[in-house]
Design a protein around this nucleic acid. Structure first.
Lengths: 105, 105
DNA sequence: ACTAAACTCAACCATGTGGTTGAGGATCCC
DNA sequence: GGGATCCTCAACCACATGGTTGAGTTTAGT
C-alpha cells in the first residue's frame, strides 16, 4: 500500500495513469509526450507495475500497458476512513460550540 | 497535490494521521510510540504540515497538532475519477466477452 | 534562580530516487 | 541477412529523504 501512494506521489506517474485510463498504450507512447528519455519513462512504468497499477503484455517488441486500478481501492478506502473521522470531529466541534460552558477560543 | 500523496506515501506519517483522527496530540505524543528520535518525528510532522494535513498551535513549550483533512479531498477526488474509468473499462471488458468474435485470451 | 522538559535547528551520514548515457536483446521490415 | 525500431539493463550522477547526534531556545516546575 505504501507502494500505491508512492507511485501516485509523482506527477509524471499520475499523468501516465490518466492517459492509460483512455486505453492501452505502449511504453513508447507513454514516453512520447514526456520531456525525458525512454529509459526514464520505462522506469516510471516499472514503478507503476510494482504498485500493481499497471499490467504489461509483451507483444513482439512492443510492451503494451493497461491500467489496473484495483489497488486504488485500498487507497480510497484509507482516505474515506479518515474523511469519515474528519466529519465526525466536525460534529464534535459543533457539539462543543453548542455546549453550555462557553470556552470559545 | 504532489505534497499530499508524498506525505501519505510514508507509513509513519499515515500512522500519525490515524492517531490525530482521534484528537489533538503534541509532537512528543506523536513521537512516543515510534522507534525513532523526537527530532525525526518532528520532521515527519513538518512534512504533514507542508502538505496542509496538519495544523500546529504552539501552547507554551508544547506544539499541539490537529488534523486538517481538507487536502485529502482533492486526493480522493483524483482517485474517484480513475475508479470511475475503471468500472467503465470493466464494462468494456464485459462487452468484449459478450461480443461475437471469440478471442478469449 | 536552577533544572527539567518539549521542541526546533543544523550538521552529518546512508540510502533512495529520478534522471542521463551507452550497450545490448528481440523483433519487424525490406 | 541487415538495419531500423522498441525496449530493458547497467553504470553513473545529482539531489532528496529519513535517520542520527549535539546544541540551543523557550517554558514549566520547584
Amino acid at each position: 500500500m505504501d507502494a500505491v501512494f508512492h507511485a501516485l506521489a509523482h506527477g509524471t506517474r499520475r499523468d501516465m495513469l490518466g492517459r492509460l485510463a483512455g486505453g492501452e498504450l505502449t511504453v513508447g507512447e507513454l514516453a512520447a509526450p514526456l520531456t525525458m528519455s525512454l529509459a526514464a519513462a520505462s522506469k516510471h512504468v516499472q514503478v507503476l507495475e510494482r504498485a500493481g497499477l499497471v499490467r504489461r503484455t509483451v507483444d513482439g517488441r512492443r510492451h503494451v500497458c493497461r491500467l489496473d486500478p484495483a489497488p486504488l481501492a485500498s487507497a480510497t478506502a484509507w482516505l474515506r476512513f479518515y474523511e469519515g473521522h474528519w466529519t465526525e470531529s466536525l460534529d464534535n466541534l459543533e457539539a462543543l460550540l453548542r455546549a453550555p460552558e462557553q470556552e470559545n477560543r
